[in-house]
Amino acid sequence: MMPTKLHPALIGFTVLVFIFLVGPLVIVVGSALSDTTYLTFPPQGLSLRWFQNIFEIDAFRRTILTSLQVAVISTFVALIIGIPASYAMSRYRIQLPRWLSTLFILPVLVPELVLGFSLLKNLAFQFNAPIYLSLIIGHTILILPYVIRVISASLASFDFSIEEAAISLGSPPLKTFFTVLLPNVRSGVIAAFILAFITSVNDVSISIFLTGPGISTLPIQLLAHMEQFFDPTVASVSVMLMVLTVAVMAIVERTLGLTFLAK
């Protein structure tokens, strides 16, 4: 069968759109490599000194660590509570109320800024909860829908009769979970982990309210730095984050295939 022919104008337009999408990121990479003390593109003189500068600024070292910590902890918590929830919703669909799936979409519907502010006002202030704990709760809620969506998608193709077979042959439930169910949704778990992780690392709107003296995340530190300086440090941190993105994409491609994201 012949594929549909495309009008050349449409192809030309699409080429321009992709230049528009990729160009600005190329510019960021270029200005990170510049040897100047101000941001410029194309780079004048090549140097890696702005990458070195990231680690010489104490605030960046600290916030990189905080961001990684928060992302790892909230991703693990989201997986530990999200996997059983996704399982329950596929396995016991009839027994559970329908509003439950709506509840798990709520974190996507409620604006992140509102969640962040509400956690500050009604958790951190009202109950004197530590900011760090509030930050982790906020991030866990933010990424829970991603975890549930990805795991549910991989459970959709899981044949629950395999699990029943294992149980009727005498395998205890917990062992069945780890030896039968989990290996079958492995790629889903890896993809969920990695998508949740990057979502947490990139978050601004929740974290902006839940950072205070001593606690800040990398994107918030970047915003603060940009208001005072216009040197290539921010560009080199951006490049670092892009390298992380490439790693994430490689892992998603290996596990779910990138077309999963186009759904």
Binding site: P84, Y92, L96, L103, S118, N122, G138, I141
Partner: peptide
């Protein structure tokens, strides 16, 4: 089955109710 389902879904349900619905409703 209903109990098993709720047990597995309850941690996530509680987190969203207490960490999102309640604080936002209070705001």
């Amino acid at each position: 089955k209903r109990l098993a389902g709720w047990t597995l879904a309850s941690p996530a349900t509680l987190l969203v109710l207490l960490g999102l619905v309640a604080p936002v409703a209070a705001t």
